[in-house]
């Protein structure tokens, strides 16, 4: 069963007195088990809309999004998924330990198993010393670590991370890379969007580039090595080319 299977996905937002805005337009791709896939695109390309649809936050206008063969809107599909949103301000009146306990219990974990997981995850994200400090007294980077820890609760088989490294300092980014490598070593599939192309180049097996909701490039990073100067140059050239093609299509229409 494929961890992610997106087929002819369309996500359109209705607007008052205007035609609907199409954030994702006929998007199709798959992510196979054990892969680390970077989902790239300029701001407003449709990355977050796609991820929202994969997580069941946004019903698709057309097409399908499936997680391990189940429809993304089915709550059971999320049993095997860990998700880290772009920015989340975890309750200021709870501590990291209580925050993780809440999400763990919602995930179906309980008792000693949950306690052990929380302690291990707080240790892994270097937050053990702040486990019982209220979230409102934590820095942005520390809150992001709480987020990473909550995403890893329940040993998910698929990790979906949206702008994962935002708010992290260089040490935090290094630790995150190590953590993702550990997750990969235990067989997890990772799908993440990021603007940090150096990071993408160092972690990913494959990249997908979208522009205005359409998939404009899909590559194994190993294929690009030696062929392009840097991932950044390649990304900018690809997005520019995509822009030109879409512009020509619009002119022809």
């Amino acid at each position: 069963m494929l961890p992610i299977e997106v087929s002819h996905l369309v996500v359109a937002y209705r607007r008052w007195f205007k035609p609907p805005f199409c954030a994702v337009d006929d998007l199709s791709f798959v992510v196979r088990e054990g892969e680390i896939v970077g989902f790239l695109g300029a701001n407003g390309a449709g990355k977050t809309s796609t991820i929202k649809t994969l997580m069941g936050f946004q019903p698709p206008t057309a097409g399908t999004a499936r997680i391990f063969g189940m429809d993304a809107t089915d709550a059971r599909a999320r049993q095997l998924v860990g998700f880290l949103p772009e920015t989340a301000l975890y309750s200021p009146y709870l501590t990291p330990y209580e925050t993780l306990r809440l999400y763990g219990e919602l995930h179906g974990l309980r008792g000693r198993q949950l306690k052990a997981q929380i302690e291990a995850l707080l240790e892994a994200v270097n937050l053990s010393h702040k486990a019982h400090t209220l979230n409102k007294n934590l820095s942005k980077g520390m809150l992001q670590r709480v987020g990473i820890a909550q995403a890893l609760l329940g040993d998910p088989k698929l990790l979906i991370l949206d702008e994962v490294s935002s708010g992290l300092d260089p040490i935090g980014k290094r630790e995150l890379r190590d953590l993702l490598s550990t997750q990969r070593a235990r067989g997890a599939t990772i799908f993440f969007s990021s603007h940090e192309l150096a990071e993408v180049a160092s972690i990913c097996d494959r990249i997908l580039i979208i522009h205005r909701g359409r998939l404009i490039a899909e590559h194994w990073l190993s294929d690009l090595t030696g062929r392009v100067e840097s991932l950044e140059d390649y990304f900018i050239r690809t997005v520019q080319a995509g822009r030109d093609i879409l512009h020509e299509e619009a002119s022809a229409a």
Partner: peptide, 17 residues
């Protein structure tokens, strides 16, 4: 508003629950 609805709904729970 806090966007904590995302990690909350990312769990295997239905909207009714």
């Amino acid at each position: 508003q806090r966007r904590t609805i995302y990690p909350l709904m990312a769990r295997p729970i239905t909207r009714g629950q």
